[in-house]
Simulated scan of single mutants.
Amino acid sequence: MDDKTILSIIDKFSSGTMNELDFSDGSVHLVLKKGGTGAAPAPAAESEASVRLGLPVNSVPAAGEDGETITSPIVATFYSSPSPEDPPFVKPGAKVKAGETLCILEAMKMMNHLEADFDCEVLAVKAQNGDLVEYGQGLFQVKRI
């Protein structure tokens, strides 16, 4: 299955009313889930090998701590920087503007840039570079600014 077909499936799923899709064609197994109250917009293609996640960043109040937890919208490999030689996108104490990249989530050989939905200060990074992260897993503890 090619990237265009996968993006088409994601687009139809995102604009539809289904909350979960489990699809397999023999060579690819695709699981899509929606969280929250509404449909998420489809990812916008950046290049054949990379898309920016158009999915909402799931943030929930963190019990006992200031701020909110930004969670992973997909099952993927977490990368804190664009390459092993580069510094991380964010570190604790960093102030981030809405739209800035927090990390890269690699799924199905697609590099997805997880961007901040709001201006915030990073209190903690909860995943290690190269970790496999689950849907809904906390990635960043942040405080809105």
Rank of each mutant, 00 (worst) to 15 (best):
D2S: 03
D2G: 10
S8T: 12
F13M: 06
F13L: 10
S15F: 07
G16N: 01
T17K: 15
L21F: 05
L21N: 01
D22H: 13
S24C: 12
D25K: 10
V28H: 12
H29F: 07
K34C: 02
G35L: 11
G36N: 07
G38C: 07
A40F: 11
S47A: 13
E48H: 12
A49W: 06
R52M: 09
L55V: 07
P56M: 03
V57G: 14
S59T: 12
S59L: 13
P61C: 02
P61V: 03
D66G: 09
I70D: 01
T71G: 08
P73D: 03
P73I: 00
V75D: 09
A76T: 08
T77C: 07
F78L: 08
Y79W: 12
P82W: 03
F89Q: 10
P92N: 10
G93D: 12
G93F: 13
A94C: 15
A94L: 07
A98N: 07
E100L: 05
T101A: 14
T101R: 10
T101P: 07
C103R: 06
K109F: 02
M110N: 08
M111N: 13
D117R: 02
F118K: 15
D119A: 13
C120N: 01
L123G: 01
L123P: 05
V125I: 14
V125S: 02
Q128S: 15
G130I: 10
L132W: 01
E134Q: 14
G136N: 00
F140Q: 02
V142R: 00
V142S: 01
R144T: 11
I145T: 15
